[in-house]
Design a protein around this nucleic acid. Structure first.
Lengths: 189, 189, 189, 189
DNA sequence: AATGAATGAGTCTTCATTCAT
DNA sequence: CATGAATGAAGACTCATTCAT
């Protein structure tokens, strides 16, 4: 990625997260990147292509960070706990990327269907870790597909919480609560 | 709501859910409602106003259905269980409304900030039920604000699951899994 | 054709003849028609579609004028003579249409290939009259296909002559010369 | 002409003939010439200048080929016959140049008016030969200016014929027909 | 109560041209 | 000699909105 392309990438993520895909304008993206509008088209064929690049490159980073964080852990329940923590941190650190993805998850445009496909793959990676933990008995045997979606949803919840309550979040506290919620649920026993 | 206004309401929800706010066009909404474009402006001042009407009227329906479902239940843990069930049913039944809301949750446009305010209120209603259950000891004492967001997130998860896996969902099965997940978590004890 | 559509049609022919297809701008066409740019798109899907409408509608008029002029003539040599005259008059009267057609005859764009198809059909109509005249012996037996193209080319020559020498043309004189050229050639015997 | 300039010349003629002046892009011309876009501007000041170079250099070649072909012929009627033949061969051999010229003959842009001027001069050369033949009585006395345009038009006809009927042309046959048409016309006597 | 022709501001995209290397 | 990254003016097209009927 050249310096210019990187500037466009960063600008685009910001603008898309602020205005959504349709709401974002090439003018804004260019201005925010500090380049001329024509430059966008020197590096990308269209707005669509910028969007796809943002998503794919972004997901790559997430994937790498997740597998890095988990690679050194052997005990599967610890993996699950670390997964909670790392996902939460990613949501926090890459909140703009998450906003872009979550805003483009819902429609019937080709772009949106593709984003769903990407999220599906992302969630299937989570499922893998859950299956491991089920296999060695630390996690309840259950329908892992749905379970991984609820896991993902819980992370989204954190994004919504963070979005709605802005500045006031305490990441460590959230981590603790989230892990407890996921592992043990809410019921008092 | 006259017949024509209702037709516009239904059409708008459909189009907004398919294309998002910016992606939806007045032409499409009018055509889908079976009226002329001018008619939209006879009933609403602007696209913005149609959108707001859709959201507010939609949320009203959800609120009423939730309180109806819970009004006859006294035991607080049963209320929580029913809340799981009813939310899941609403996500399923009013999926288009949920798609509209969830797609408009993430940006910095006035409209999106307003939608977040509405969701915030909606989640605070959930919090009320959780507080009740904590008070009588059936639910663990915890940070209820965050807990209600995770609850909401889990419901969103169901929406995503349903969206990505389309047709193949089994609502009853999902209900059982969801309730177990929320109440007891995933860990084997 | 509504009044507005007609205004667009007339404007477009003028602008296309002045600037060619690519050189013409929608702004110019709209301004010249006395309507807003959006109005062009209310009546036509695209610039391309305006162009096609101009060509097809224009060719229709030519076809009708030719067959009207020839319908009342029975002697085939007189038909040929009248064909010379009427073609020349059409080139003169509809010079803008001819300019548009002749400028769009030469490339490999779909639009240009289509125009060639239309011209081909137009020339095949001429061929019909030549064949008749050959059948009754007033015109030399020859390769009629090529002959009709040369006939057409001679008409184009008149267009070029008229274009290059502007104002100074004497239509009657041209008619006489043209007919003599076509019927008897240039050689002195 | 250096090798690079020649490459640009050849590329430009090809692209202009395929897409017209406005339709041709500098990118395409550069790519087709196997050079970088900047190189075009090393050799030419602008697209306009490339175009003019193409036309002028092209017409030069035509002029030379015509005068070469006719220089050794003394009998004026033979000159006319050879003129037919050589023009037809040029149209065939340099069809791309003819397409460029013929597509740029019709508008009101400066460039197009200039092309008309060049064609005018080219036709006036033809006129010269016709005048000679009139002077010694082999060609009918007539308005030579118009006659030379019809002569040119007949050649254009061949171009159109060739363009529309592509591959299927038989050059020798065409030459015979064309010469007969020009010298003796179509009428049976 | 309802329409649909007309608008024009705003958007994406193209492309001739420049310039530092 | 030659390059190609970068530009920005200009063009096709969209669409929310208006208004006379």
């Amino acid at each position: 990625m050249t310096k210019t392309k990187l500037a466009i990438f960063n600008s685009a993520i910001e603008i898309f997260s602020k205005s959504g895909y349709e709401g974002a304008t090439m003018d804004e993206i260019a201005y925010n990147a500090g380049v001329a509008k024509g430059t966008l088209y020197y590096y990308f064929k269209s707005k669509e292509e910028i969007f796809q690049y943002v998503i794919k490159e972004g997901i790559n980073v997430l994937d790498m960070k997740v597998s890095n964080a988990l690679s050194s852990i052997n005990v599967s329940i610890d993996k699950i706990i670390m997964l909670c923590r790392v996902q939460l941190e990613l949501v926090y650190e890459h909140r703009n990327l998450f906003k872009v993805i979550l805003s483009q998850l819902w429609g019937q445009e080709l772009r949106q269907i593709e984003v769903r496909g990407i999220v599906r793959k992302y969630i299937m990676d989570i499922e893998k870790y859950l299956k491991e933990a089920i296999d060695d008995g630390t996690v309840k045997s259950s329908e892992t597909s749905f379970m991984s979606y609820t896991f993902f949803g819980t992370v989204v919840a954190a994004a919504v919480y963070e979005l709605i309550n802005e500045d006031k979040v305490n990441l460590e506290e959230m981590e603790k609560n989230l892990t407890s919620y996921i592992l043990k649920g809410i019921q008092n026993i």
